[in-house]
């Protein structure tokens, strides 16, 4: 039987320097942070990070010096609007940037997922976005003759996605109320690594009742990594909410010594030590839903 299970070390071994990695989730929701921390601990370098809907995944890898180029539409901690680690790196010119509109990123990923060179759109026209990213226009061949932007395909060497349930074959469930664009990020990638809150038997996925929570078929998935609370400090509702308190501590660790302390305590820690450092499962499970 197919067995796609990997541990974090085996996951990191599948990656290499200079790769283009796509990250699922949205700002402070369902980011594959256990995988991000494993990359931060590794010797990997010169990564192109495609994190269109960025959160602490971007700030953490920026602060750890892993990013050569960042493709994004925003980086936000949501309740704390700006990520200071991202800001500091961006302001220092620490990496090349390719800034996209949120919908333009969706379109470019969709083109990549469909193995097309581009998809036409109006999004971005009239702004500074296309020229900076080297995008080109294309004229409609039909009677309207409209000049449109050709949103170039984004292809990824690997996608990192966090889900709630997975079996060892790569069947997955995203149980939160919004799957975001994880399906497109996965389909645009050559390899897809899925961290999961719980690794379960196929029968325990609760199909067909949960069919609408199944984001893609298992052939999309390369590897499955069991990672309880693997989205922390971002949220993975309904299993647990956003740890705003931890995000504040992360955002406050800007001075060199404070960052070194944070890194030692929360990044260099293995998953078990990390879970203890952030208060253990009981605390995380009790975090209330965020207020917007």
């Amino acid at each position: 039987m197919l067995d796609k299970r990997l541990d974090l070390d085996a996951f990191v071994d599948r990656l290499s320097d200079g790769m283009t990695l796509g990250v699922g989730g949205w700002a402070t929701r369902r980011k594959p942070m256990a995988l991000i921390r494993a990359i931060a601990r590794s010797g990997l370098k010169d990564l192109t990070l495609v994190a269109p809907y960025g959160g602490p995944d971007v700030g953490l890898l920026a602060a750890c010096g892993k990013i050569r180029k960042l493709v994004f539409a925003f980086v936000s901690l949501d309740h704390l609007p700006l990520d200071p680690h991202f800001r500091a790196a961006r302001q220092a010119g620490a990496f090349e940037v390719r800034e996209l509109d949120e919908g333009l990123a969706q379109w470019s990923l969709r083109a990549g997922a469909m193995r097309l060179p581009f998809l036409p759109t109006r999004v971005g026209l009239g702004t500074d976005v296309p020229a900076e990213a080297g995008m080109k226009t294309i004229r409609s061949p039909y009677d309207d003759g409209e000049l449109l932007l050709a949103a170039p395909a984004i292809r990824l060497d690997a996608a990192l996605i966090h889900v709630h349930r997975a079996d060892q074959l790569g069947n997955t469930l995203i149980l939160s109320p919004d799957p975001f664009f994880d399906d497109l990020i996965a389909r645009a990638a050559d390899q897809v690594f899925v961290s999961t809150e719980q690794l379960v038997a196929t029968a325990e996925l609760g199909l067909p009742a949960n069919a609408r929570f199944n984001p893609f078929e298992r052939s999309v998935v390369t590897g499955v990594i069991e990672a309880p609370f693997g989205a922390h400090p971002t949220g993975a509702t309904p299993d647990y909410g956003i740890d705003v308190e931890h995000l504040k501590a992360y955002a406050a660790a800007t001075e060199p010594q404070a960052w070194a302390d944070y890194r030692t305590r929360f990044v260099e820690a293995d998953p078990q030590a990390y879970l203890e450092a952030v208060g253990g499962p009981a605390r995380l499970s009790a975090i209330p839903a965020p207020v917007y």
Binding site: R90, L104, T127, V129
Partner: peptide
């Protein structure tokens, strides 16, 4: 100052 990023502004404004 690095702010949020363009977010969805380009697409909103043209649609």
């Amino acid at each position: 100052a690095a702010l949020l990023g363009v977010r969805g502004y380009p697409g909103n404004s043209i649609n």
